[in-house]
C-alpha cells in the first residue's frame, strides 16, 4: 500500500472541526482546574490535620493512577454512586479533577519558593486573610508558576484525546471514524497528529510570550 498524501489532506477539514471540541474541553478543564487548584491550596494552607491527611491520600491516588482509569471511574464508576454524567461532562470533570491535584502541587512548590517579605508586610499591616490571599499571595504565585501552568495546559490538551475512549467525538475519535470509511488510518492519524502538534506548540509559544511579557513584573 502506498502512502496517500491526498487522503491526509482530505481528512483535514473534518479533523479541524473536531479539534474545536478538544480546545473547548481543554479550556473548560483548565479553568476548572485553576479555580480548583487555588481553592485546594488555600484549604491545605489552613493545616487542618485530618483534612490534609485525606487530601494527601487523594493527591497520592491521582498522581499514582493513569488518567485513563480516572476517566473510566468518572464515566462508568460514578453512576454506581448515583451520579450519571454524559461522556463530555464526565470527561471534563475527570481531566479537571486530575489537573486540580497537579496544579495544587505546583502551587505548593511555588509557595515554598516565594519571598516571605510581602506576606509579612501584609500581615503587619493587618490585612485580612482574604486580602492577603487575593491581593498578595495568589497574584505573585500565579506569575511565579506560569511556566509549569503552561506545561499543565499542554498536558490537559493532550489528555483531551483520551476522551475518545468514552465516545466523545474529538480529534482522535474523529480520526478513527474517518479511517473506518476511507481505510487510510495512517494518513488520517498523521493529519490528526500534525494538528495537535501545531496546537500544542502554539500553546507553548504563547506561554513563552506571556512569560517574557510578565518577566519585568516578576522581578
Amino acid at each position: 500500500m502506498d502512502f496517500s498524501v491526498e487522503a491526509a489532506l482530505a481528512a483535514l477539514p473534518a479533523l479541524l472541526r473536531a479539534t474545536g471540541t478538544n480546545i473547548a474541553i481543554a479550556a473548560a478543564a483548565m479553568a476548572l482546574a485553576l479555580a480548583g487548584g487555588i481553592l485546594l491550596t488555600i484549604l491545605r494552607s489552613l493545616k487542618i490535620a485530618p483534612l490534609n491527611l485525606v487530601i494527601g491520600v487523594v493527591i497520592s491516588f491521582i498522581r499514582g493512577t493513569p488518567v485513563l482509569i480516572q476517566i473510566f471511574l468518572f464515566y462508568y464508576g460514578l453512576p454506581a454512586l448515583g451520579l450519571q454524567l454524559d461522556p463530555l461532562t464526565a470527561g471534563i470533570c475527570a481531566i479537571a479533577f486530575n489537573s486540580t491535584i497537579f496544579i495544587s502541587e505546583i502551587m505548593r512548590g511555588g509557595l515554598a519558593d516565594m519571598d516571605p517579605g510581602p506576606v509579612e508586610a501584609a500581615i503587619a499591616l493587618g490585612l485580612k486573610a482574604r486580602a492577603i490571599w487575593g491581593k498578595v499571595v495568589i497574584p505573585q504565585l500565579l506569575l511565579r508558576i506560569l511556566p509549569p501552568l503552561v506545561n499543565e495546559a499542554t498536558i490537559i490538551l493532550k489528555g483531551t484525546a483520551l476522551l475518545s475512549v468514552i465516545t466523545v467525538v474529538e480529534l482522535f475519535r474523529a480520526a478513527q471514524q474517518i479511517s473506518a470509511t476511507t481505510f487510510r488510518p495512517f494518513e488520517t492519524m498523521l493529519a490528526a497528529a500534525a494538528i495537535i502538534l501545531v496546537l500544542n506548540v502554539l500553546v507553548s509559544q504563547f506561554g513563552g510570550m506571556l512569560e517574557r511579557r510578565l518577566a519585568v513584573r516578576r522581578g
Binding site: 493532550k158 483531551t160 484525546a161 483520551l162 482522535f172 478513527q176 498523521l190 490528526a192 495537535i196
Partner: peptide, 11 residues
C-alpha cells in the same frame, strides 16, 4: 512531547 501518546501509539 507534543503529540498525545494515544495518537502516537496508533501512528
Amino acid at each position: 512531547r507534543n503529540i498525545p501518546f494515544i495518537v502516537m501509539l496508533s501512528l
